[in-house]
Write a protein that binds this DNA or RNA. Structure first.
Lengths: 171, 171
DNA sequence: TGAATGTTCCGATTGAGATTCGGCATATGT
DNA sequence: ACATATGCCGAATCTCAATCGGAACATTCA
């Protein structure tokens, strides 16, 4: 039998203790911190932090580290959300082929009065129109509705909740 | 007079040549590559790549490097887009205070029949309901409409277009 | 045309930091 | 209580990031 690798008190079902979540939060905002810096922030030694991060990476909690680029400065100032109404199951082959387009950042199937939500970032109106016409041509697509972003006030990835220290022990 | 720092042929107005865009694309998908690996992929020396990346970072093209986390594995399996209809200008103080919530990933003002689009990732329906009631309480909020994601088929950040090599020269 | 300036690249060096190893303390289960 | 496993630490190693000086190339101006 394997003990389920329980570290010091895992109140959360995710198997992540408080230190893990703090590390994840720190890395989610800036992944280029040194293990020395991280170790100081969570009161551990650099090798201990290294092992935890390695485990989080192995378990897929950390999917990878990526560079965040400025949409405008790479020539894609136009951010838009496209709602796509489809007949039947929306996630067909030609829709998945949109992944090849650099403009398309996200593809979700959703509940509600529409079936697909796309997040796209284009170089300008004509490029967006191009993409829209391409989507409309896809068989099964009934209609689309676009929401062009005027301003972006927050944009980040998933971050774990770091609960307030309750009672358990040392600082 | 300053020459505007023109590198070898910048057909794009962004001031980024083809090598820059390839580097940006590589770093946007995996930022933990070594300069040696990058240098081999773009046929340059490690210091040359280092300088280019340093410049891209200084100019703000690269805003930073972050760790991508798995929403489900950190206990937030519920992804949703919330459209918020407001009276007048939607971006008020209490809306910006939503940034403090770990659930809220994105806040945009948009054109169309709604004023705000929020991307949120919650631990479950009750948490989402909590957030919705909090939003409804904000003065100026007329109504909200939620789209819960059933499946996510693509999710990434901005990526520069890498044009096909046209004619200019060496490989 | 020819000199001056600025930019980009490379080779070699230095230093910081990532990664590994052995050992200790603590918790878990029989 | 004993055996096993897990997490942490200190020290050593080794890869890789970061810097420096110089050469090649292009652009500007005389």
């Amino acid at each position: 039998m394997k003990t389920k690798a329980i570290r010091q008190g895992t109140p959360h079902p995710s198997g992540l203790d408080r230190t893990d979540r703090i590390l994840l939060r720190l890395l989610a905002e800036r992944a280029d911190r040194s293990y020395a810096e991280l170790s100081a922030l969570v009161h551990l030694s650099p090798p201990a932090v290294h092992e935890r991060v390695k485990r989080l990476r192995r378990d897929g909690v950390i999917q990878g580290t990526v560079a965040r680029l400025d949409g405008r400065k790479i020539g894609c100032p136009l951010l838009a959300f496209i709602h796509v109404a489809t007949e039947g199951w929306g996630m067909t082959r030609p829709v998945l082929e949109l992944k090849a387009l650099a403009d398309v950042e996200e593809i979700h199937t959703v509940t509600g009065d529409t079936c697909l939500i796309l997040k796209v970032r284009s170089s300008g109106p004509e490029s967006l129109e191009n993409l829209l016409s391409r989507i409309q041509e896809i068989k099964g697509v009934r209609s689309t509705q676009s929401y062009v972003a005027l301003g972006t006030y927050l944009e980040r990835g998933p971050m774990p909740e770091v609960p307030e220290r309750l009672s358990d022990g040392d600082d």
